[in-house]
Amino acid sequence: MTGTNLLSVADLGPDGIAEVLRLADRFVEVSSRPIPKVPALRGKTVASVFFEDSTRTRLSFETAARRLSADVLTFSAGSSSLNKGESLRDTVGTLEAMGVDALVVRHRSSGVPWQVARWARRAAVVNGGDGWHEHPTQALLDCYTVGVERRARGLRPGLSGLRVGIVGDVRHSRVARSDVLAFGALGAEVTLVAPPTLLPPSLDGWGVAVSHDLDSLLGELDVVYLLRLQRERMTEALLPSLREYTAEYGLTRRRAARLAPDTLVMHPGPVNRGVEVDSDVVDASVITHQVANGVAVRMAVLFWLLGAGSAAGAPPGPHEAADPAAVALPGGGSDDARALA
């Protein structure tokens, strides 16, 4: 299975997610090497096109691309011609004219990666997070992290049947929307835990349960996924105060003590310590592991889109046969590749 774009988790389906996660396993191993680099995408160019500040996601994608030996172009709105009135479409055209193979797009408006995908003639488009809508690579790395962390604890690594609580501002969260799709596709039972003002107006078709009472769920959850709370929500009459939010929905030390010992505490970052989660709970969480896994998962996504066997790579062939960690260089030898690796 290969793709031309990764816009939504729904583009992958359960099999696609599983395949990306399998690839990620290989790339975790690459990242642990003394020289964490393979030539899989040598000659390819990946542009990170970030219209919204996001240092961590951008660095994660760029690191992933470099570890695959791709060239990296960085476009950020602050330093770009967008300030000179250039349209989004012209920006895409300009980058494509430079021979870019993949555009990793982040924008504060929902749907921009879909617009970019319509305009792009040959580059693959990766959604690096759009508005409140989706953040598919975050969801993939979250699924990956759950599997790895559970395996490390001697638990069944599959997500099927796991009880996942996603806590907080689901309404404005692209992470929540993608996680619901990904966790759901892999068979987890997801409960959204939030005051009604921080839930989307409709959950038709989401296949999730809803709770307004975190305390009643604590002992039952395999994963507690905390969402970041933006401070401006207080001014939109969605919440009376941060203090009240923390009292009702924060993962305080007292609440964390009631979690089962193997429950994973996750957060997409950046964390508001003391708001969504108490500081020492952060330190016992798997949040930094999520970040580390992010690089491997994004390597998997870029390889899936651009590597041997992908729609953009040549020659097409059965993808399962390609070993990304020792892939042959185009026109070169695999010995060379192993030497580099």
Partner: peptide
Amino acid sequence: HEGPWSSRLGIAG
């Protein structure tokens, strides 16, 4: 329009 689609698409309805 606010409803299932706006909720799914992450667009203010």
